[in-house]
């Protein structure tokens, strides 16, 4: 059933159908989110206007974890069922996840300086997110470290699965250890500790980011599949020339 989408033509058609359904809502939700985040949401009682950094920081952090989880699942599917699209999806997702993690770290630092009084501390939360960033970079590096792309794919997939253990560690780091970073505000048992006027821009941005990820994912998967086809074609041509 899924196997048939490994056919590049079918995938391209599916991607072409889905793309506008991801890209336009992503743009609309992010613009609406930005409007509320910057113009139409209250300052925080403690942090004043600086709370507006939350509306990019928190959705990026969620995406950093979400993309990594998707990538690792995709890698597991690739390793177990040898589905060619699975590795392509993981390969396409990695740079997107790395970018979201980078944005999360940068905006966190820009938020930490005025509020906590420091750009960076080595507490469990910040350190585990930095490790996540390096896992993404390691995945990308390992993939291209072998002459045989299939070997690179497999090694990178194993790294992604090993690194999956970091995802719950990041989430629970603020519970298990003393950290400078505060505990979770939204995803917690007792319900969100954020006022609804602040939850609105947060959720708009979060859903917008998710759709933006899907948009980028489809574009990048398409490019990767085309690159593979180009590689195959030029190999065939070289072969043909050698035979003549």
């Amino acid at each position: 059933m899924i196997q048939k989408y490994a056919n590049p033509a079918r995938f391209n058609r599916l991607a072409a159908t889905l793309l506008p359904w991801f890209a336009w809502p992503a743009a609309i939700l992010i613009f609406a989110g930005l409007y509320f985040a910057l113009f139409n949401s209250p300052p925080d009682y403690q942090q004043g206007e600086s709370v507006r950094i939350m509306y990019v920081h928190v959705p990026s952090a969620w995406m950093a974890l979400f993309v990594y989880t998707c990538m690792a699942i995709s890698c597991a599917v690739g390793l177990i069922w040898k589905h060619p699209l699975a590795h392509i999806a993981a390969q396409a997702a990695a740079p997107i996840g790395a970018c979201f993690t980078f944005v999360c770290l940068m905006t966190g630092s820009l938020w930490g300086k005025p509020i906590w009084g420091t750009w960076w501390v080595w507490d469990a939360r910040l350190t585990s997110v930095l490790i996540l960033f390096f896992l993404y970079l390691g995945f990308l590096a390992l993939q291209n470290a072998f002459d045989d792309p299939a070997r690179g794919e497999r090694s990178a997939a194993i790294l992604a699965l090993v690194g999956l253990i970091n995802v719950p560690i990041i989430h629970y780091s603020v519970v298990w250890w003393n950290t400078l970073h505060q505990p979770a505000s939204v995803i917690k048992m007792a319900g969100p500790a954020i006022h609804s006027s602040m939850l609105l821009p947060l959720f708009l941005m979060a859903i917008g980011f998710k759709l933006y990820f899907l948009t980028l994912l489809l574009l990048r998967m398409k490019a990767l599949m085309m690159a593979r086809r180009a590689r195959g074609m030029s190999m065939a041509q070289l072969h043909h020339q050698a035979a003549e």
Binding site: G48, F102, W111
Partner: peptide, 29 residues
């Protein structure tokens, strides 16, 4: 409220990184 440089730097970084990735992906395609 005095946090302008931090807020705009944060939104700017996010915009440059995320739109930059879109640009690079389209160029690659």
């Amino acid at each position: 409220g005095g946090y302008g440089s931090f807020i705009w730097a944060a939104y700017g970084t996010a915009a440059i990184v995320l739109l930059g990735l879109l640009y690079l992906s389209l160029r690659e395609l």
